[in-house]
Design a protein around this nucleic acid. Structure first.
Lengths: 189, 189
DNA sequence: CGCGACGTTGATTTGCCTCAACGATTGTGG
DNA sequence: CCACAATCGTTGAGGCAAATCAACGTCGCG
């Protein structure tokens, strides 16, 4: 059931049989319906989520009511609001399933204890978050360097599967512009 | 010499006397002159840097030649390019001292061994990077939600000391617009 | 079928950039 | 210590990328 997660962890750190067992018994498995939320604005985020199957988006709602997506997550990606998780603050974000999905759920309350018992887990999470942070820095580079049109083409080349799985207006939101503008880009040829 | 760093680590994880000693003997101390670089584009980033004293900026150079700052770091902040560090890729970024500064330097080559000997260090770095990532997500929220003018005023309120220490054109660069535009914002009243 | 969600297209507006010229301040060599 | 250059900030005119607003086409679904 958690094969893909175990395999993912083993790509970063070694894991004994006992550790694997301890891990899988500490996890929670969850089926998530399309449009169901893992987190809503104002709630405390209490878990780190690993996508076993399906697709999610993390977004917030701007003052003018427009949704702004800041992250997608598909199979083998982690998604959570670390700000809310670390500081126990109400979240600014929504995390919602775009497709029928399944996740493995690491409850925050068990993480310290679990990391004490499987010390390599701290390293695993450190490396995972470092990657996410590096990607975020790289993303900033794209935002500042390229025009909307260039960013759209780059996204298409880099993540062709998203174009298949995700409605166009969500791509627009993630890239920071309006659905109309995507239409116009596609119209130019 | 490393008091502020030790204190910073102890805010997140416990540290025994021996561990503290092992740590301080593994670190390197470095004075950095104003405008000196810790990292340049094309180089491999080989260390994680903790600011003991002074101020740094991390930036890249856009295709049109304009500098784009993506992070500042003052006392008690870590600064590095994790993308280059993790993947051993040439960096896209520059890290440069804005003031005469002093840093503690964690060489990447000793980090795995050091973390094996002081397991809590993995957790410390995990928490540090999580914070940085959360801040980066929050920053994205600001970029997408607010106009340049709003972002400038928010930055002023949130980080008044930077306005003192950092030239105005660097603030402009960090916020993603031109120095001229900052002038015009200040002119409106 | 008819309604709501999604995408397209065009006219108009706007936030910020570009370019250019000009003070003020800093720093540097003679 | 002054002269001069370089750096930094200000101001204005004009331009462009992308937003806004509005109308319409299309598809899937209760």
């Amino acid at each position: 059931m958690y094969d893909s997660l175990i395999a993912h962890i083993r790509k970063f750190v070694p894991l004994s049989e006992e550790e694997e067992n301890l891990l899988t018994t500490s996890l929670r498995h969850k089926k998530v319906r399309k449009k169901e939320f893992l987190l809503k604005e104002g709630q405390l985020c209490s878990a780190n989520h690993f996508v076993l199957k399906g697709c999610f988006r993390m977004y917030f709602i701007q003052e003018n009511g427009v949704e702004q997506i800041i992250q997608f997550a598909i199979e083998n990606w982690w998604i959570t609001d670390y700000q809310s998780l670390d500081w126990q603050q109400p979240s600014h974000f929504y995390i919602q399933a775009i497709e029928p999905s399944e996740i493995a759920l690491f409850d925050q309350s068990i993480i310290p204890d679990l990391c004490d018992r499987i010390p390599k887990l701290d390293r695993y999470f450190r490396l995972i978050v470092q990657r996410a942070f590096a990607a975020s820095q790289q993303n900033l580079l794209y935002i500042y360097t390229f025009s909307g049109e260039e960013r759209y083409h780059h996204f298409n080349r880099a993540f062709p599967e998203f174009i298949q799985r995700v409605p166009q207006y969500m791509i627009a939101s993630y890239l920071g512009f309006t659905p109309e503008f995507v239409s116009k880009i596609k119209g130019r040829r």
